[in-house]
Amino acid sequence: MSITGFSHKGRGVGVRDHQLILPSVVCSTHVSRKIANEVGAITFAHQNGCGIIGIDVPGVDNFFIDLANHPNVQSVLVVSLGCETIQGPELLPKINRELSRLLVIQESGGASGTYESGVTQAKQLRDNFKSEKARLDKLIVGLDLSRDTPNLSALKTGLTAAGFEVVVESEHAVSEHNLSKLMSAKAQVVISFPDENQPPTGFPLIPVINIASTSPLHMALASEFDLAQGSSVEEIIELINKVANGQKTRSEVSGIGEIVAPRSVRSV
């Protein structure tokens, strides 16, 4: 089955056509959310960009770069405060220059000026540079193994045979950390096996297909999962193809899941 996605200059062919409003610091997350809500873009709340030290400085910087360069992204508006550690103006040259712009709150007349200018710029980026449809030759499928899954090798073999590249993350018992790593590996669709005691999850830039276990929590939340425990490899592949061609996952419909940047050092 072929996959038709969106041609994103400098970012590759993506299976989604998202605009990203990227706050370079916690202080610009709120105005970023207002802009994103107004124009229908993706954004996220986070606590980074200022007061961070050590390996978290390049770690968060690289995470932001990976988000901005992800193939599912059509365009990026970086919103900076102006005095943060990870400075917006310095982030901009490090990300794909196609359809990427910067706004600085302290230089834009404050929050309301930034909001108005941000909405205008985001709409321009969206409307003046509509993405063309393009065939995606190799879909990267991420596997979030927050719990053990019995038929893993059969699943991997099946996905590879179906023509997908497979990347796996199983380091963490909570999906959001695995999802962040899979995003950095440029996964465009993720199959998530949440821990029995964790809910289904999502990652706003990437469609996540959640597969339930038979735990009491998962049984209670059955309607928020895409597939039940024991779904066959063929069923999973069929759903990946549908989702890659535009069908929304449950988590995309409900809008769940926070984007969580990797951190390992305290804030100053």
Binding site: C50, G51, I53, G54, G82, C83, T85
Partner: peptide
Amino acid sequence: SINYEGIDIRGAQPSRGN
């Protein structure tokens, strides 16, 4: 707790913005 991370806080602060 900051030195524990191998960082000299008096070198990292004041911040660039400061």
